[in-house]
């Protein structure tokens, strides 16, 4: 049995997550993502949260949906905030204020704006300094909290309120940043991509991350009902299609070694995923653009297939 194994029964018995009454949109997958992360931890956790959907919908004073210690300070600094907490924990152990054997898992949650854009510097700094924390990026691929503005996580062609699909311009003209590779390039001990649709894969990655000392990063796709434009009951299906089309491959880089953790039996055309979402509706009859998107997906997937099992640092 693998070291980080946990049975579904045990996981469901733990069931630690946001309390009922949080204000996330119907169908939003991040309450499930939070539940998976918190329930996967064998130790107590302390959470820092960047400004964003998760923060505003889970903590409207005087209510809080969080059953664990939780702090929010600003948008661009969640990695620095958790770094400060983790540092205090270390110094308290060193000075005998906290027992040496006390274990806490430090977790930062940030959306794509807080991670790819405004908080990238703080995250990069915290990783370089080697703080012991797990960063969970819940990636809904735009600034959803402020009303669907493009971020550097927004994929090519997506219609957002600041990359609108107009008569001349077909949505966002730039590719999204590959944040997972950027974080991996830091030499981060553990980096992974996950999806709530493949929940056991996700939970295994979380548990593996908790076992590793130093900074850890997991990018989890978090489809957005209003931002992507689909029905409330389709979030997990949309996340699943992102994986099955290889738009969002599931893989990990553990101490520099690439590993594809899921290979679709049959790689579906990306069109199937795009067609499901309002934000790509204007592309459906633009065959040349769909072809371009497919080409980029294929290139990235090929690259990962080549890297699978290889050590890059």
């Amino acid at each position: 049995m693998k070291k980080n194994f946990i049975s579904l029964k045990e996981l469901s018995e733990r069931n630690i997550g946001l309390a009922p009454g949080h204000r996330a949109c119907a169908g939003c997958p991040f309450p499930s993502i939070v539940r998976m992360v918190l329930s996967a931890s064998d130790n107590p956790v302390v959470v820092a949260n960047a400004t964003g959907c998760l923060e505003v919908t889970s903590t409207i004073f005087p209510y809080s949906a969080w059953p664990v210690p939780w702090i929010h300070s600003a948008f661009e600094n969640v990695a620095a905030t958790i770094a400060g907490i983790e540092t205090a924990f270390r110094v308290f152990k060193k000075r005998g204020i906290i027992p040496e054997n006390k274990k806490i898992n430090f977790i930062a949650f940030g959306g794509d704006g807080a991670t790819y854009d405004i908080g990238l510097q703080a995250l990069s700094g915290a990783i370089e300094r080697g703080h012991n924390f797990l960063y969970i990026l819940y990636d809904n691929q735009a600034y959803m909290n402020t009303g669907i503005q493009r971020s550097s996580a927004t994929p090519f062609g997506a219609n957002t309120t600041t990359s609108p699909a107009g008569k001349v311009i077909p949505g966002k003209l730039q590719d999204r940043k590959d944040i997972t590779e950027i974080i991996a390039a830091h030499g981060t001990p553990y980096v992974a991509q996950a999806s709530p649709s493949h929940f056991y894969d996700f939970i295994s990655k979380i548990r593996k991350a908790f076992e590793i000392k130093g900074p850890k990063f997991i990018a989890v796709l978090s489809p957005c009902v209003p931002g992507w434009g689909y029905r409330e009951n389709e979030s997990i299906e949309i996340a699943k299609l992102a994986v099955e089309t290889c738009f969002w491959p599931l893989y990990e880089i553990e101490h520099g070694v690439y590993k594809l953790t899921y290979k679709p039996a049959k790689k579906l055309p990306v069109r199937i995923w795009l067609e499901k979402q309002e934000r790509f509706k204007h592309l459906i009859n633009r065959e040349e653009l769909i072809t371009e998107i497919q080409k980029k997906v294929d290139e990235k997937w090929e690259r990962l297939l080549n890297l699978d099992g290889k050590k890059i640092f």
């Binding site: 600003a74 905030t81 540092t87 510097q121 990069s124």
Partner: peptide, 18 residues
């Protein structure tokens, strides 16, 4: 890596009781 992070780390550590 910046003063913004300096104060953010201070805030995190101070909120931890340091």
């Amino acid at each position: 890596e910046s003063e913004h992070s300096a104060m953010s780390v201070c805030i995190g550590a101070s909120a931890a009781g340091a």
